[in-house]
Amino acid sequence: MDIPYTSKPRPDTGIYNAKVGIWLFLASEVMLFGALFSAYILLRVGAPEGTWVHGMLNIPIGTFNTFVLITSSVTVVLGWAALQLGNFQKYKFYQAITILCALGFMGIKSFEYADKFKHYEVWLKNPVTVMHGDKEVQTNRVLGHIEYDGKHPYFWNTRTLREKGIEGFKFEADPYHYTLSPKELAHAKSVSKGKPHVVLDIKTADVERLSAFVPSHSTYFAVYFTLTALHGLHVLGGALVIFYIWGPGAKMWKSDPLRYTNRVEVSGLFWHFVDLVWIFLFPIIYLL
């Protein structure tokens, strides 16, 4: 006996096996991301005033990435529709765009990641004067970039300073800080555009804590990196499957076109789900 309903639908349920399978899998994915979102809500609601980082991500880039992902989603359904009409070449074309979009998304994401890994916050023992927009303020928390030995180093933290025996470093301070309210932050960002940065000379002895924008910087970045990395893994996994079906697995179109179309549909369902997760991730992480 062979396994029935691998490509044709079972009469009473009206669906083929893999479609039940993918929807069950997506159900568990809903719970996985649901748990992470509820963690986000709890941590955000419980965060003391002024500790929740906001405004640190590049919104235009995030928006562009959203467009990229939505485009990839529509090409998946268009490809599937072409396949239903038996137009294999058109399908190949659309799915190629999907795969390129997936790569584009990951490329942009890694650029964003790398940018964060060399962007720092330093907590000082004594306050210094920096610009917040057009105002001068006294603060002991400064954002900016480290310059040491003519380089902008990655992944430094308080312990690095101690371990490398660094006595002091140059710090190009950003003209604003995330502890401002969203409105003040927006104002500060707009007035300080293009103005030269303040460069501070910071002694290691004055440093209370130093952290790049890595997961351990704060709960916000912990959430940001965990959620986007998990989402990124899904993008990568989905793209691999779509690529396999598109390239090496395309032989099946000749031997069993119905089953091949089903494969495209099922991989597409997963891909749309990945898109759907991003639709929620984008506002809660980039905007709110």
């Binding site: 568990s28 994915e29 719970m31 996985l32 991301f33 649901g34 748990a35 992470l36 963690a39 941590l43 890595v214 997961p215 351990s216 704060s218 709960t219 912990a222 990196f225 965990t226 998990l230």
Partner: peptide, 21 residues
């Protein structure tokens, strides 16, 4: 199980990458 998987990933982040979930 997925919520525990999520929690496991977060605790792993706590243990390995020094986050504070």
């Amino acid at each position: 199980f997925p919520p525990l998987e999520a929690a496991g990933i977060m605790q792993l982040m706590d243990n390995v990458f020094g986050t504070s979930f």
